[in-house]
Design a binder for these strands. Structure first.
Length: 480
RNA sequence: GCUCCCGUCGUCCAGCGGUCUAGGACAUCGCCCUUUCAAGGCGGAAACCGGGGUUCAAACCCCCGCGGGAGCGCCA
C-alpha cells in the first residue's frame, strides 16, 4: 500500500510551492490507490501558530486536496502533529544513544559558535566531529549542567562514509563521505530537530514515498544515515525542483503574490491553480494543457516530473484561469462571483436572489472578458454608477453623420415596443444602415456614451442590461 | 569556501542514440471573424549554454568549463 505525506510547518500561509508539493503527493497517492497523509511539522515553537495550521488546512480543502489521515481527522498512525509526538522522539533518540550511535553533548552554544567561526575563517566547511564535541563531556560539565538544570542535546554520530540515494526524479545521487559532521537530533528543550523528526515520523507512519522539494535533497544524506542507524527500511525519495521567481531566484513574497490565499482573493479558481501548478514540472503524456483533476490522477507518474527548476509564469496562470472561467455555466460563474460582487457594494447580499435574472445575463455578458473574478467589479461598474465620458472622448460626435445617427438611435430606442435583445439589435443595425454611418466609430462612441469606457461586454448586452431609462438618459445628454 | 542539484524558443514542457529541416502551450507579431475591446479561428518569428570525447550516427551517453539554484542551524 502506497502511503505518502505532505508535511508543512504551520508558520504562514500555504505557498504555491508547497501547494504543488502537496498536489504531486496527492496525485501520486490517488493514482496508486494509496493513502495521503497530512502531518503538521510544528517543532519550531517560535514560529508555529495554530492560526497558520488552520489556514493551511482551509487552503488545502479549498484546492480540493483532501487527506486521508491528518491532525483534524486522525488515523491509525497518529498523532499527526509533531508537537504531540515528543515522547516518541525522546524514546527514539535515546535508543540511538544506547546503541552508541548518538551521544549527549555538553558543549555550550557559544563554544560551538566559536568553533564554527574559526572553521569558516580557515576556509573549512563547518562541521563537528564526535571528538571535538566529546572533549567538553567532562565530569565538571555534567555537574554544571545538573546544577543549572540544563539538559544536554543529543548529537548523532555521522558515519564518515559515502551514501547513495536513488531518487525517483533526480536519479542516482552520490554523497561523498566525510563532508558532514555530527549533528543535533534532540534539543535540550526536549524537542527534536527536523532531520531527525522526519525520519522517525516517516518510518513510524509507514510512509513509502517521500515526495518533497529539492531544497531537502542535501538533507537526505543525514536522513539516510539515520535510517541506517535504526536499520529501518528506506522509503522511496522523489525530489521535485523549486519554483523560481521571474528573476530566477527562489520564489518569494518580493515577487508578488505567492500564497494560495492571495490567488483565491484575486479570483482564481482552485481548478485553474491546480492545473497550472501540475504543469509546472509535470506533463501529461499527451501534452494536454487544460486537464481536469481526475484525468491528472489517471495519468500521473513520477517519471514525467521534470528535474529542472521552473519559473512561475503568472501570465500563463492568468490565461488558464480565463479558460476555466469560460467553461463555467452562467449559474456557476455567478455563484463564484457573488462574493466579489458583494464586495463592490453594488448589490447587497440580501438582494442577490431578487436580481438573479439580471445577474445571470450580466455574467453571460462578461464571461469571456475576464481572467480573474475580481474584475467583475470594474465590468459591472457602468451599470451601477453613472460614468460620464469626457468631451475629448466624444469628439467624434462633431461628425455630422455620426451625430445624426445618435439622434435617430435615441428616437428609435424611445419608441421601441419592447426592450428585448432582438429588438435592440435590429434597431442598432437599422440605424447604422439608414444613416450610412461608419460602424466602427459609431459603436465605439456608443460604448463611450453608455459606459465611459473603451472596452467591456458586448454592446447589445450593455444596452439591454442598462435598461431603457438609463440608455435614453445617457444618450440624451450627448450634445448632438 | 565545501557538498549536491539543474541547463531545449522570453516562460512552462515534449524529446529518453537515427523518425529533429527539434513538437506543443503561454506571451509576442500578422491576418480572419465580429458590433469597438475581448473571446474564437488561422499563420509567423522564436531554442538544443560552450568545448572536448564515445559512436557509422548525439538535444539525448561521458568528461571539463561556464551559468543558475539549493544545502551546510539546538529553522523546517
Amino acid at each position: 500500500m502506497v502511503r505518502v505525506r505532505f508535511a508543512p510547518s504551520p508558520t504562514g500561509f500555504l505557498h504555491v510551492g508547497g501547494a504543488r508539493t502537496a498536489l504531486f503527493n496527492y496525485l501520486f497517492a490517488k493514482n496508486q490507490n494509496g493513502v495521503f497523509v497530512l502531518r503538521i511539522e510544528d517543532t519550531d515553537l517560535e514560529r508555529s501558530t495554530l492560526e497558520s495550521e488552520q489556514s493551511l488546512l482551509r487552503t488545502m480543502k479549498w484546492l480540493g486536496l483532501h487527506w486521508d489521515e491528518g491532525p483534524d481527522i486522525g488515523g491509525p498512525k497518529g498523532p499527526y502533529r509533531q508537537s504531540e509526538r515528543l515522547d516518541i522522539y525522546r524514546r527514539m533518540a535515546y535508543a540511538l544513544v544506547e546503541k552508541g550511535k548518538a551521544y549527549e553533548a555538553y558543549v555550550l552554544p557559544e563554544e560551538l559558535e566559536a568553533m564554527r567561526g574559526k572553521m569558516l575563517e580557515n576556509k573549512e566547511s563547518p562541521r563537528y566531529s564526535h571528538e571535538t564535541i566529546a572533549q567538553y563531556d567532562t565530569p565538571e560539565r555534567r555537574q554544571e549542567f545538573a546544577q543549572k538544570g540544563w539538559s544536554p542535546v543529543v548529537y548523532f554520530k555521522m558515519p564518515q562514509k559515502e551514501y547513495v540515494l536513488n531518487d525517483r526524479i533526480k536519479g542516482r545521487v552520490v554523497f561523498k563521505g566525510g563532508t558532514t559532521g555530527d549533528f543535533v537530533i534532540f534539543r535540550s528543550t526536549g524537542i527534536p530537530v527536523y532531520n531527525f523528526a522526519v525520519v522517525v515520523d516517516d518510518a513510524l507512519m509507514e510512509i513509502t514515498h517521500v515526495i518533497r522539494g529539492d531544497d531537502h535533497l542535501t538533507n537526505t544524506l543525514r536522513q539516510l544515515a539515520l535510517y541506517e542507524a535504526y536499520q529501518m527500511p528506506l522509503p522511496e525519495f522523489a525530489h521535485v525542483s523549486m519554483i523560481l521567481g521571474p528573476d530566477g531566484s527562489r520564489l518569494s513574497k518580493r515577487h508578488g503574490a505567492t500564497a494560495v490565499e492571495n490567488f483565491r482573493e484575486m479570483g482564481y479558481l482552485p481548478e485553474s491553480l491546480i492545473n497550472y501548478l501540475a504543469l509546472l514540472g509535470w506533463s501529461h503524456p499527451q501534452e494536454n494543457e487544460i486537464c481536469a483533476l481526475n484525468e491528472m490522477i489517471r495519468a500521473f507518474s513520477l517519471e514525467r516530473v521534470s528535474s529542472n527548476p521552473a519559473i512561475f509564469d503568472s501570465g500563463k496562470l492568468l490565461w488558464m484561469n480565463g479558460m476555466y472561467i469560460r467553461q463555467l455555466t452562467p449559474e456557476a460563474l455567478l455563484e463564484k462571483a457573488v462574493p466579489f460582487i458583494i464586495e463592490t457594494g453594488y448589490i447587497a447580499p440580501e438582494n442577490v436572489d431578487v436580481n438573479k435574472k439580471w445577474l445571470l445575463e450580466a455574467m453571460k455578458a462578461i464571461q469571456n472578458g475576464i481572467h480573474q473574478l475580481d474584475e467583475v467589479g470594474e465590468l459591472l461598474s457602468p451599470f451601477f454608477t453613472d460614468p460620464i465620458p469626457t468631451a475629448e472622448a466624444l469628439r467624434s460626435l462633431e461628425d455630422d453623420r455620426l451625430s445624426a445617427a445618435f439622434k435617430l438611435l435615441y428616437e428609435r430606442f424611445d419608441s421601441i415596443p419592447s426592450w428585448e435583445i432582438n429588438e435592440i439589435i435590429s434597431v442598432i443595425k437599422a440605424v447604422v444602415k439608414d444613416t450610412k454611418v461608419n460602424p466602427k466609430p459609431f459603436y465605439h462612441t456608443l460604448r463611450l456614451a453608455l459606459t465611459a469606457r473603451d472596452t467591456g461586454p458586448e454592446l447589445v448586452h450593455v444596452v439591454h442590461l442598462l435598461g431603457r431609462n438609463k440608455v435614453l438618459n445617457r444618450l440624451g445628454r450627448l450634445e448632438v
